[in-house]
């Protein structure tokens, strides 16, 4: 569900002709019902509607909106939209983290020339808790 992008500054110098880059999926963690992983593929409105449904119809007091890499912007956007549409009833609490991603580099000439390499790179992620504050 995450959307990961290629960082501009590659740690390992590689020749694009020699290797094929295959990105592995980011490590997933078990998902609760009120977790929303934001991606760049699904329509923005659909994702916003999903969050609203969880908060209003789903009966959750709080939801977590997660975004990775390029999707951080969108996650923030969704959270802010939710807050704006609730007329200030919702509060936000944002956390950032770093996620380790794994890439496979497959050599084009697979015999003797090069071993397939694996490299890790880091990408930023945001986790925004959107919640109704306690009445007191």
């Amino acid at each position: 569900i995450f959307n990961n992008r290629n960082p501009r500054n590659t740690a390992v110098e590689m020749d694009p002709v020699e290797y094929t880059l295959r990105k592995r999926l980011p490590r997933k963690l078990p998902k609760r019902r009120n977790d929303v992983y934001v991606n760049m593929k699904t329509d923005f409105r659909a994702q916003l509607a999903r969050c609203q449904k969880l908060l209003e119809g789903g009966g959750h007091r709080e939801i977590c909106v997660h975004g990775l890499g390029l999707a951080i912007n969108r996650a923030i956007n969704i959270a802010l939209q939710l807050q704006a549409s609730s007329q200030g009833a919702l509060q936000l609490a944002a956390n950032t983290s770093t996620v380790e991603l794994v890439d496979d580099l497959e050599p084009e000439d697979p015999d003797e020339a090069g071993e397939p390499m694996t490299r890790t790179r880091n990408n930023s992620a945001i986790h925004i808790k959107v919640f109704y504050p306690d009445p007191q």
Binding site: P110, D111, E112, E115
Partner: peptide, 12 residues
């Protein structure tokens, strides 16, 4: 053939 991708001799 190597041209069609990894062969039987691929190191891994």
């Amino acid at each position: 053939s190597k041209e069609a991708g990894p062969t039987f001799a691929a190191a891994l």
